[in-house]
Design a protein around this nucleic acid. Structure first.
Length: 387
DNA sequence: TATAATT
């Protein structure tokens, strides 16, 4: 089980822009002559969202750009689990454009989200994802795209690499715009040797990632349950009580602990965080919070409120998302602005769901140099509240 | 030899 956690595969992906089609208007919803609304310039698809991100967090993140007409985090119909992508339809096409420019590539926990225009929904674009294996280890993502591009428009491509060495694992994925393009690629390339390759490649339709093995689903259950608990870290394993499918010995608590430790450590999101981060140390975090957090407001409803001081007058919400997003679930960010000038008054607030992630963010970002300023970051206290 | 891309 713990092996599955360490098996996270690092990948590279081309960011393909799905440009909106049709003529462009400066503002407002586009109404075609038949009365149907054309949302091609306002509707976005967001991919590679963290597994634990909620609909509320999703809305909060994209709502910080502009007024949203509608948004939806897509979930598995049966399990209710996030499928890792969603849609945001803005009122104003300019905000959709702004969202792509400011949020595409944003790092959230272990993910780098992708924000692009949604293609018009249709049956012809479904099931157009191919799984490719037996690729020469020297073949790059560009090489692979070049090979497949003769069969149609490529939406995404990816070659899986060993996380430690960075060397290609010889397998990858190609998503075409249309299913029939994917079919043609299979006909043309399955069993063929790429230019100069020793072995033929296998090209077939990819399995649907939502069709998981029982064990993978159980892992996911554990992750979800573990992240929901927001107490101090050293209490986490002893308070945790999801046992039956995992316990092999007479004391399921003991046999479960190492698994949980792995899952919890994997959930800190430290790996993808800025290089300035110190190594994770539960003792440091705990002593810091117990000494400095005398007047902690605590997890009031939504989560743990963090006070961020010494932001520049130009700071905006996206800065706070970028700073705190890598550490875990962020439910809300707010930059406090002067009423008349609309400039940041030098501080803001961030709400995070989980105590351990909030503590990690504070430990890492307090004293962080942002431009020519040094940030002060702490749990919000009642004293600061009055100020 | 397996990633969360169409509501």
């Amino acid at each position: 089980m713990s092996r599955m956690v360490t098996q996270i595969i690092s990948t590279m992906e081309t960011q393909v822009s799905n440009g909106p089609s049709g003529t462009s208007l400066p503002n407002g919803p586009v109404i075609s002559t038949n009365g149907a609304t054309d949302d091609s310039k306002t509707n976005l698809i967001v991919n590679y969202l963290p597994q634990n991100m909620t609909q509320e967090e999703f809305k909060s993140l994209f709502g910080s750009i502009g007024e949203i007409e509608s948004c939806k985090l897509v979930r598995d119909k049966i399990t209710g689990q996030s499928l890792g992508y969603g849609f945001v339809n803005y009122v104003d096409p300019n905000d959709a454009d702004k969202a792509i420019n400011t949020l595409n590539g944003l790092k959230l926990q272990t993910k780098t989200i992708k924000v692009s225009y949604a293609r018009p929904s249709s049956a012809s674009i479904r099931d157009a994802n191919l799984y490719v294996s037996g690729l020469p280890k020297t073949m790059t993502q560009k090489d692979m795209e070049q090979l497949f591009s003769q069969y149609g428009r490529i939406i995404t491509s990816r070659i899986l690499v060993d996380q430690v060495t960075g060397i290609s694992r010889g397998v990858g994925f190609i998503r075409f715009d249309k299913r029939n393009e994917a079919e043609e690629a299979i006909k043309g390339l399955n069993g063929q040797k790429p230019l100069g390759a020793a072995e033929p490649i296998t090209v077939k339709f990819a399995n649907n990632p939502s069709q998981k093995t029982g064990q993978a689903l159980l892992t996911q259950l554990y992750q979800t349950a573990a992240r929901r608990y927001t107490g101090p870290l050293h209490h986490q394993t002893q308070r945790f009580s999801l046992i039956p499918p995992f316990g092999k010995g007479p004391d399921p608590n003991n046999s479960t602990k190492p698994i949980l430790d792995n899952l919890l450590n994997a959930s800190y999101g430290v790996k993808s965080s800025p290089s300035l981060l110190p190594r994770f140390s539960p003792i440091t975090i705990d002593s810091m919070t117990s000494l400095a957090g005398v007047n902690l407001t605590g997890p009031t409803g939504a989560g743990w409120c963090i006070f961020v001081y010494n932001l520049s007058p130009e700071a905006d919400e996206s800065v706070l998302w970028q700073l705190f997003g890598p550490f875990g679930a962020v439910t809300n960010v707010k930059v406090i602005r002067d009423f008349t000038t609309n400039k940041c008054k030098g501080f803001g607030f961030v709400t995070m769901t989980n105590y351990d992630e909030a503590a990690m963010a504070i430990a890492s970002l307090n004293g962080y140099r942002l431009g020519d300023r040094v940030l002060q970051v702490s749990f919000k206290t009642s004293k600061q509240h009055k100020a």
